[in-house]
Design a protein around this nucleic acid. Structure first.
Length: 577
RNA sequence: GCGCCGGUGGCUCAGCUGGAUAGAGCACCAGACUACGAAUCUGGGGGUCGGGAGUUCGAAUCUCUCCCGGCGCGCCA
């Protein structure tokens, strides 16, 4: 079952093509801007009429006449509005049928992609030398939501957690680890606070030249594959990954060890990349470093801007690894490579993508997309930090979310058993943090504010979760029956709610295309609002026989739609709260 | 200097490929519970969509220009 919008676009587009005697026309169908303008409106008449030298209203009229000859059962009637809009009114009967089918087969709510493809999504990507902090929150959450949507659409998705596990700092850490652990041999404890471990190591490195020298040597040994150093490194990485996994689990993020695409994986490819660039005559030496200069990039004072791929000391860079990674995607026949990374790196990705193209590491069949996002700010509008100005650890932020939610739940529902309140608080707290982030347009910076995200009013996780819990409460009270048919849409609230649910699919199509999860959030918020209105205006359990059954079916479908939507965002709804 | 992102009611944000009187929530004012869960709902006031010019039948949306803010721009990742 194609989405309503998709279907209407093709039906009306074809009628327009016939009327204008052209190959194809864009009907440009959108959901109507006002209730008085029908359920959907076709905006394409005006521009296509102009293109074919017709009067818009004449074209609209012809299109309607031609459609009426075999009117699709979905459409009840068509009207011309304003300068030449076609307002589309859908048939109640068809809405009921489609909704009923969706209740019986919930997967129908979201149509699969017509052409499934192979997509690689790079997201989260923490640096394993340190602990995850708030800077990793957005990418991790947004990336995970995108991945869930793409998979649900039937694409083959390869998650890629491009963790930083290689480079000079690991020499320092391993050297320090040997020292620190040598004494008491209690590694997990020594690494329990990665942040202070890193700080202490850095201090040793800065203060003691002998230590620094040893650290530098260990990097070389590591890169040459020295067994002892390698196993020490593995132990450190393993421990650090465990930290990440704790956070992923708390966040309910789908990343696992199987999704690692670590920097170290490309260690042996880096020199090859340089050789290849050299072979293609793309490499230039500038101030001792090996660079690629492309004419479309210029820096300060209009000077050519290089992408440095090898430092003057022979070391490789992030850019080198990225090029190697792109080349691997190409070999894996990935068709879309998404990089869910902070917006500040947009120039970096522009350059890397351009060089990859120029060098033939990627061809036109591989779409390279930087899915950028803005910075998380505090209430003062400056980057989010602790009062003392430190970066906030992600684990601590999530603990605070749970605690705040717990206080709230306790206030609202003091009689619930404590264990249940804890459980609810965890879902609400984490859900609130995730939803606050996902519901904003990812491209702009956003202000992290506890009171807004934990509010029960407005476009927040608690509001959606409450709507879901409310429905579940009704369904628990209803006599046990299946309730799988929508029989009546006589009240406008019923109809509006029902139609809205049939539109989940077209929203998911858009998220697949644009990677903007906030569109799904907006949709779910509107859906919940429509449910609340329906709930206030239409008695469900108190109604009469068949009406009650139909309304309970509507409730079931609403719960199903909300659940599917929330789960795609990585939020699991609660039966009770 | 060049480039990227942003500037929408007091605050936080929507506004999908340009479309018909710019939408929410908070805050403010006024209402609705002996309850299908009020963690909700109903109504009200409040906006030169940063300024200007242009393209168009039609611009918050596209183009140009200026102003303001954030970020990036050679050996960090």
């Amino acid at each position: 079952m194609a989405s309503l919008k998709h279907y209407l676009n093709s039906v009306i587009g074809e009628a327009m093509a016939e009327a204008t005697q052209s190959e194809s026309c864009n009907a440009n169908v959108i959901t109507s801007s006002k209730p008085g303008f029908g359920d959907y409106q076709a905006n394409g008449i005006m521009s296509e009429a102009k293109r074919h030298g017709m009067k818009p209203r004449d074209l609209a009229e012809q299109v309607i006449i031609s459609l009426k000859q075999s009117l699709p059962s979905l459409i009840d009637r068509l009207e011309i509005g304003g300068p030449g809009f076609i307002n589309i009114y859908l048939s109640d009967k068809e809405i009921k049928q489609r909704a009923t089918r969706a209740i019986q087969e919930p997967t129908l709510l979201i149509p699969s992609a017509e052409v499934p493809i192979k997509v690689a999504v790079d997201y989260s990507s923490p640096n394993l030398a340190k602990e995850m902090h708030v800077g990793h929150l957005r990418g991790t959450i947004i990336g995970d939501a995108i991945v869930r949507v793409l998979e649900r659409r039937g694409h083959t998705v390869i998650r890629q957690n491009h963790v930083g596990d290689w480079g000079t700092q690991f020499g320092m850490l391993i050297t320090y680890m040997e020292e620190a652990v040598g004494a008491n041999n209690d590694l997990p404890n020594a690494l329990s606070d990665l942040e202070s471990f890193y700080r202490d190591a850095k201090k040793r490195f800065d203060d003691d030249p002998a230590f620094a020298e040893k650290a530098r040597l260990s990097v070389v040994k590591l890169q040459n594959g020295d067994k002892d150093y390698l196993s020490a490194w593995e132990i450190f990485i393993d421990e650090s990954l465990r930290h990440c996994e704790t956070v992923y689990e708390a966040l309910d993020v789908t990343l696992t060890r199987n999704d690692l695409d670590a920097e170290s994986r490309y260690n042996n490819d880096l020199s090859v990349i340089i050789e290849d660039l050299q072979g293609m005559d793309l490499l230039a030496e500038s101030k001792g470093a090996k660079c690629v200069f492309l004419p479309e990039f210029s820096g300060k004072d209009g000077e050519p801007l290089p992408l440095i791929v090898q430092k003057s000391d022979g070391g490789y860079l992030y850019s080198t690894t990225d090029l190697a990674a792109i080349r691997l995607r190409q070999k894996m026949k990935v068709q879309r490579a998404l990089y869910v990374v902070d917006a500040r790196q947009s120039l970096h990705f522009q350059q890397v993508f351009a060089v990859a193209r120029a060098a033939g590491f990627s061809d036109q069949d591989l779409s390279l997309e930087h899915i950028s996002y803005g910075t998380m700010m505090g209430k003062d509008g400056r980057p989010f930090r602790t009062r003392s100005g430190d970066t906030v650890k992600l684990a601590e932020l999530l603990e605070e979310a749970k605690q705040r939610a717990y206080d709230l739940v306790t206030k609202k529902n003091p009689t619930l058993p404590d264990s249940q309140r804890r459980d609810i608080a965890e879902r609400v707290g984490i859900g609130a943090v995730k939803y606050a982030d996902l519901s904003k347009n990812r491209t702009s910076d956003y202000i992290f504010d506890w009171s807004t995200m934990l509010s029960f009013d407005g476009n927040t996780a608690p509001y959606l979760l409450y709507a879901y819990a409310r429905i579940k409460s009704i369904l628990r009270k209803a006599p046990e029956k299946s309730y799988d048919a929508i029989q009546s849409l006589s009240d406008p609230e019923e109809r509006a709610l029902c139609l809205k649910m049939l539109q989940l699919g077209e929203i998911i199509e858009a998220v697949d295309r644009d990677c903007m999860p906030n569109q799904l959030c907006n949709y779910l918020y509107e859906l919940s609002g429509l449910f609340m209105k329906f709930y206030e205006n239409c008695p469900i359990l108190k109604g009469e026989g068949s009406q009650t059954e139909s309304r309970l079916a509507l409730c079931r479908l609403t719960a199903e739609t909300l659940q599917q939507g929330l789960e795609l965002l990585g939020i699991t709804p609660l039966e009770q709260m």
